[in-house]
Amino acid sequence: MKVCKQFRAGKQTKIKDADAAQKPLSSGDKIKDKELVTELATQIAAQQEMLFAGRSHKVLVVLQGIDTSGKDGTVKEVFSVINPQGVHIANFKAPSDIERAHDYLWRVHQMVPQWGEIMVFNRSHYEDVLVTRVHDWIDEAECERRYAQIRDFERMLAETGTVIIKCLLHISKDEQRDRLQERIDDPAKHWKFDLQDLEERKNWDRYQELFGKAIQATDADHAPWYVIPANSKTHRNLAIASILLETLIDLKLKPPAAKPELKGLKIE
């Protein structure tokens, strides 16, 4: 079975805590799994080199998830081997005054990948149908309009050469509690902790509901959602690396054709 198919969300998605602990790709040996992540990251780097050289595709990886779900950790472990020229990270936080003066997709469109590039959205345009609905900054009718706009936006990206991979990093409520507590207990990790995280945690059930709705509204063959069990950090990385590598291999990337004018050329 292809890895992508194994984690594909589809239209009927209900986010359950129990699913977050699954580890279908694990060997049962954490050390071996970490070694495999490194191996996959190296293979991704080789594919990315051909992607960058050929410039026939663009790749957008969306990492979405609740606080502590592991977006930063995924970037560190899965993308660190790639040549920095060919991969870029965009982190969409609270919009600035200038960004608020435009439509909500304005700042997002500026960050989509160029030809030959992998762009990683660490949080994304989906914040505008998640946080905004949790806090009732937009109503249901506006949310539905935004789902339609996001579908159109992603279809336009796909039709102009962008390969889209959307990953929901799914952890359980108990796992989030443990990770937040670890940040509090370790002074070296205090910089990672924000009291606002505790306020957002009060909306846990609402976030899970809205994750499911967003996936149901915007999953498509050209912009698929994958639900990644992420209680295990190693398995999370293993799953996302496997999905990305499989997607790149399916593109059948090749180095550019040799230049005839260079045949036989000798440097003196």
Rank of each mutant, 00 (worst) to 15 (best):
V3Q: 12
V3P: 05
K5F: 02
R8F: 09
G10F: 10
K14P: 04
K16Y: 09
A20G: 05
K23L: 14
S26W: 07
G28P: 13
K30E: 15
I31V: 15
L36Q: 13
T38E: 09
I44S: 06
I44P: 08
I44L: 07
A45H: 08
Q47A: 03
Q48V: 09
Q48I: 02
Q48P: 12
E49D: 15
L51Y: 04
F52Q: 14
A53D: 14
G54H: 14
H57N: 08
K58I: 05
V61Y: 03
V62T: 03
V62S: 08
D67S: 01
G70N: 04
K71M: 02
D72G: 09
D72R: 03
D72F: 14
K76Y: 12
S80E: 00
V81C: 03
I82S: 02
I82H: 05
N83Q: 06
N83L: 06
G86D: 00
G86C: 02
A90Y: 01
K93Q: 07
A94E: 09
P95W: 00
I98Y: 11
E99M: 04
H102N: 02
H102I: 01
Y104F: 11
W106C: 00
R107K: 03
H109R: 13
M111H: 07
G116F: 06
I118A: 10
F121K: 04
H125Q: 04
E127C: 05
D128T: 02
T132V: 15
H135I: 08
D136H: 14
A141W: 10
R146N: 15
A148M: 11
R151C: 08
F153T: 04
E154Y: 10
E154D: 07
M156K: 15
A158R: 00
I165F: 10
L168A: 06
L168Y: 12
L169G: 05
S172W: 11
S172K: 05
K173A: 13
E175W: 01
R177E: 11
R177K: 11
R177V: 07
R179G: 08
L180V: 03
Q181K: 10
Q181Y: 15
E182N: 12
E182M: 11
D186C: 11
D186Q: 06
W191F: 04
K192Q: 13
F193A: 04
F193K: 04
D197N: 09
L198E: 14
L198K: 07
L198G: 06
E199G: 14
E200K: 08
R206H: 12
Q208T: 13
L210S: 00
F211W: 06
G212Q: 00
D221W: 03
D221Y: 02
H222M: 01
W225D: 02
N231A: 01
S232G: 02
H235P: 00
R236T: 01
N237C: 00
I243S: 09
L248V: 01
L248P: 06
I249K: 14
D250L: 05
K254N: 10
P255H: 12
A257I: 12
P260S: 07
G264N: 12
L265P: 04
E268H: 10
